[in-house]
Design a binder for these strands. Structure first.
Lengths: 257, 257
DNA sequence: ACAAAAGTGTTTTGGGTACACCCATGT
DNA sequence: ACATGGGTGTACCCAAAACACTTTTGT
């Protein structure tokens, strides 16, 4: 299992690794999770022996591309390994190809050496969206941590740059595609949806104007279900209907609030 | 020179090729050019000996990534090779990674074999924008042809798919970034700009409404110059001021007409 | 009864859209 | 003089924005 996550952690020979994986191409993934009214991102701890000490570093989850899979399959594989979830939304957003991107920090480079023979890896950046409540924590990989997306610690290699671009692309895409629903639970209240927008765009919206706009979206289905166990008027639950969205979307539609 | 364009056309050994280039990563580029009131794309002819006949096929310009360059440098290199131009706008838009993308057609695969040892290449799709009048035709590469972007012939490998996605991404990006000015000449009339939008989005706009909207763009500078030699009232020329654009742009701005 | 969030309408303002005529130039 | 595209203003409608009170539940 662990060998799936980090190809070749000192166990497989580099020859066996090169037989299964393309050595010079990888996928790194900013996995965004929404939960507890916060947008979070999954980072992984790595223990790196260097100069007799063990360094602790953090990185985005990633993996090399297998010889028989395309990169979307690689991304889906990473999601499965890290979170236990399948059929999660993943999207490639940019390629990171600086010839020296792995040599910024010698400790990081030390982590790489036993894994691959190449000193240069081109990586395809993906972002991924999920609701943290859908994650079975017993299946969440060890050494993983959900960090607030507005306060990400220093990461290995160029992973801070990859994350920053992922976040920027996510905001951009959210205005044009129905991606909020990937972050929300299946049934959600309009206030939850509004709070999510406010979190991601770091702003606030007027409740009445927000609801008027949202009510025009035919693919937002009001359910005959309500919140329970809240000490205030229970809010109506809604769900997203992708079929109606596909039928009624127009070229020009956007999701700006 | 030709060896720059098609790495290893039977001349360099595959070992020498692998020393200079990353064998499993390439860049393919949809070079859009605007001219004669048409949006065009550059395609290249290839002569492929197969079963005793010489087949003629067309493809998008592309090249492998050199071991010491990042992919934007690869794209810039391709632009220089194909058009003779430097400092041209290039943008990566998607990675194409189907393990069988080069094996769709056996004749195409025959073209590849003498060039590289790998049977699988992951390619990064770029699009590029220029005004065809800026191209010095004596520097345009042989066997290149400008095709109307709405009527592209069958291309090798998955290049039709790459082109289609490039065109789709171009339309999307044009609504959010000041990319029209990459396609227009340095000085242009408002009607030229309107025609370009109409060509790309395959629609028409009302002249007065269009001009009202455009006049609100502070970065569109009216010049004290006019068309000459036209048999009607000469139109005023305008230019795009990137500095003013950068200063005054807002998160929410868009270029929809 | 109180706290806490749900839910709801009206007015004002600005932008989008539809539409028709005169102007300057070359031939 | 005529053909060609350049250039301009007004009226209507709808969407965005600003703004405050009543309702329903749990404690």
């Amino acid at each position: 299992m662990e060998s799936e996550v980090n190809p070749n952690p000192n166990r497989i020979s580099q020859e066996a690794f090169a037989k299964e994986f393309l050595p010079s191409i990888s996928v790194d993934c900013a996995i965004f999770g929404y939960g507890e009214n916060e947008l979070k991102v999954l980072v992984r701890r790595e223990f790196i022996p260097f100069n007799g000490e063990t360094h602790i570093e953090w990185k985005l989850p990633g993996n090399h591309v297998k010889r028989n899979e395309d990169i979307d399959a690689t991304a889906a594989r990473i999601l499965k390994e890290q979170t236990g979830l399948e059929n999660i939304y993943v999207k490639q957003f940019s390629v990171f190809s600086d010839p020296n991107r792995l040599k910024i920090n010698m400790v990081d480079y030390e982590w790489l050496k036993p894994r691959i023979a190449e000193d240069r890896v081109i990586t395809v950046g993906f972002y991924s969206l999920l609701n943290i409540n859908d994650v079975d924590n017993s299946k969440l990989i060890e050494d993983a941590n959900w960090e607030n997306a507005y306060d990400v610690k220093e990461l290995m290699f160029d992973h801070n740059q990859i994350f920053d671009e992922a976040f920027k692309k996510l905001r951009y895409d959210l205005l044009h595609e129905p991606l909020v629903f990937e972050l929300l639970p299946e049934k959600f209240t309009l206030t939850e949806m509004q709070k999510l927008y406010e979190t991601i765009f770091n702003t606030t919206y007027d409740k009445r104007n927000y609801r008027r706009k949202v009510n025009k979206m035919a693919y937002l289905i009001p359910l005959d279900e309500f919140q329970t166990g809240v000490s205030h008027k229970p809010a109506r639950l809604y769900s997203f209907n992708r079929d109606i969205y596909e039928e009624t979307r127009t070229e020009r539609f956007d999701f700006r609030m």
